[in-house]
């Protein structure tokens, strides 16, 4: 940098001050551009926009294009445009429908369970802010959430193992016959659901704590002085302030739960039979095991549309509530 700092730097902006004008070179023109108020925002946004377009927009359009083609990597044929053939095939495919309905049950159960438990735990931690060891307990409870699902799946496959898994050792120790949790169709779905709940309940607990944190203390104190019954405190104060954050948590969990694949792949590979075969796993198999790219792209588009539908419903409900409040 040059030492020439004559003039009044403050009046010309910081960047101009760092690079004195006078030399009409390329750098000077570049820094002049940076000082332009219309140009600077665009400059600052460019990196993220480029990233977004390369990694999001282009793949999405590509996916959309693929979904209209018959394109399999194993057949050796060139991709061929087939219109809506893939979509029609999927909509007529009974096993996809089964996977989809199983996935809806999965989403429903996991979201309800995790929300229920998460909210309960959140309230417990909220009410116990003076309890010693609270921070340690919180940290421990958050641990499942930060583990990768593949690792978690592996742990629990071992824990559930009928012969040397610790769970069955406990069961045998209390005199009961061991259970092959992941190997029999009556228990596999529930066993995987339990692990998913173990993993994601902390997330909803976190959201509950955040929601409760947004409730003004003064209103709760007023309620205490007025002796409001607890259900009225919940309705009039806590839900009023906390519902947005809580609903956001439920929405994120719903979308995420809809995409569950890694955990199931690691624990049961969709089995036994297809009792734990979620639709995202089907998608994974069709694209990366059967290399049926056209067909799986079409399925991906359908799943994306379902996710968008979920989101829209939540956003609609939240906005509707807000409009109701304003009226």
């Amino acid at each position: 940098m040059q030492s020439n700092r004559s003039g009044s730097p403050a009046s010309r902006g910081l960047l101009a001050a760092m690079h004195p004008t006078g030399q009409a070179g390329l750098t000077a023109r570049f820094f002049a551009l940076l000082n332009d108020r219309r140009f600077l925002p665009l400059m600052l946004l460019t990196p993220v926009l480029v990233f977004f377009i390369i990694w999001n927009t282009i793949p999405l359009l590509w996916l959309l294009g693929l979904s209209f083609q018959k394109y399999s990597l194993t057949s050796g044929d060139d991709p061929a445009f087939t219109g809506f053939a893939n979509y029609l095939e999927i909509l007529g495919n009974s096993s996809v429908w089964q996977d989809l309905s199983r996935t809806f049950v999965w989403v429903f159960l996991s979201v309800v369970l995790q929300t229920g438990l998460g909210v309960a735990l959140g309230f417990l931690f909220w009410g116990s802010h003076k309890l010693p060891g609270r921070r340690i307990a919180l940290t421990l409870l958050f641990a499942p959430m930060v583990l990768t699902p593949v690792a978690t799946g592996t742990f629990f496959r071992l824990i559930y193992d009928p012969t040397f898994g610790i769970l069955n050792q406990v069961i045998r120790a209390i005199g009961l016959p061991s259970v092959d949790f992941l190997g029999q169709s009556s228990t596999a779905f529930w066993a995987v659901l339990a692990v998913d709940t173990w993993m994601w309940t902390p997330f909803l607990m976190l959201m509950t704590l955040a929601a409760l944190g947004s409730v003004p203390k003064a209103e709760l104190e007023a309620a205490e002085v007025d002796q409001l019954p607890w259900h009225q405190r919940l309705r009039l104060i806590i839900l009023h302030h906390g519902k947005f954050i809580l609903m956001l948590g439920v929405l994120l969990r719903t979308i995420d739960s809809f995409k569950t694949m890694d955990l199931v792949l690691q624990m049961t590979k969709g089995g036994p039979g297809s009792t734990t075969n979620l639709v995202a796993l089907t998608l994974y198999r069709q694209s990366f095991e059967s290399f049926n790219l056209g067909w799986s792209s079409a399925l991906a588009v359908i799943l994306l549309l379902i996710s968008i539908a979920f989101t829209s419903i939540f956003i609609f409900v939240l906005n509707l509530k807000r409009r109701g409040d304003a009226a």
Partner: peptide, 21 residues
């Protein structure tokens, strides 16, 4: 005694009205 049991009227510094009502 808990706040409710004291029969004291209270006007806090922050308004603390019930937003729903």
């Amino acid at each position: 005694l808990p706040p409710g049991g004291r029969r004291i009227g209270y006007v806090p510094q922050s308004f603390a009205l019930y937003p729903h009502l």
